[in-house]
Write a protein that binds this DNA or RNA. Structure first.
Length: 242
DNA sequence: ATACATGTTGGAGC
DNA sequence: GGCTCCAACATGTA
């Protein structure tokens, strides 16, 4: 569910709530729910993996974490962390992180680092990565300050697509390859969005959770790598360690 | 059916 | 202070 492209889809699905007044608020979120009552939703935004429900003087930041879910005009038996009703419409969030942030979302985020934003700035990513020569590529592809919205699927697929071993240090990548990494993080995020929307994302996974490398036909490697020891799927034959 | 998963945070311990 | 490790969050899936 929760990588950047999925958040853009969520934002689009919530667009009908823009301009509508909240008539009921529920949920176990540890925020002052009374702040939301009778307020008009001014905008729905996304940044990286954050969903932002914007009001005049504050916004609600929803992060779906590892297994967050949401239902629009539908519900299930477990308690929602946050439920917003606008007349006939309702959105229910389950097992998500919900934070109320004072101020406006525009000033709170840098959309140039958001892989899914029209403002995505690859030069900024290149500059940032040049400051991180000792980091592994499998870590920087999860760094939300560099590639906001990139997650474990995007990480694994991009490294496979550009044939780079996940434990390669950023500083060892030739400039051409570094730029290819940045370029493909964007390209694959847009493909992820398109495929997710068409419900065909999984069938396009080439290495993530695959048993064999589709290029070499040898068994794919599965290891827990990087700072967060996250699941890393790769081909030891065609992904080069620089 | 026990463990793991598209993720992040905060605290303990060193 | 900084780094690393770990638990917690709460649920669906294999």
């Amino acid at each position: 569910m929760p990588e950047g492209p999925s958040l853009v889809i969520l934002k689009e699905e919530l667009a009908p709530f823009k301009g509508r007044r909240i008539t009921a608020v529920n949920g176990y979120a540890k925020i002052d729910l009374t702040r939301l009552h009778n307020k008009t939703i001014k905008d729905i935004k996304s940044w990286g993996k954050h969903c932002l429900i914007c009001f005049d003087t504050f916004f609600i930041r929803i992060h779906l974490l590892l297994f967050g879910k949401y239902l629009i005009n539908d519900s299930k038996s477990v308690n929602p962390v946050l439920s917003l009703t606008c007349g006939k419409g309702v959105v229910n969030f389950y097992t998500a992180s919900v934070v109320l942030v004072e101020g406006r979302a525009e000033g709170a985020y840098d959309w140039e680092t958001d892989l899914m934003s029209d403002l995505w700035n690859p030069k900024k990513a290149e500059k940032a990565l040049k400051q991180l020569p000792d980091e592994k590529v499998c870590d920087v592809l999860l760094d939300q300050e560099v590639f906001s919205g990139s997650g474990n699927i995007i990480k694994n697929e991009v490294l496979f697509r550009i044939k780079v071993h996940p434990e390669t240090q950023v500083g060892n990548l030739p400039l051409k390859k570094l730029r290819e990494l940045i370029k493909d993080a964007r390209t694959y995020s847009l493909l992820f969005y398109k495929w997710k929307k068409a419900n065909v994302l999984k069938r396009h996974w080439q290495i993530y959770k695959r048993k064999t490398c589709p290029r070499c036909n040898i068994p794919a490697e599965i290891k827990y790598m990087g700072k967060g020891k996250r699941l890393t799927c790769f081909c030891s034959n065609c992904q080069v360690k620089y």
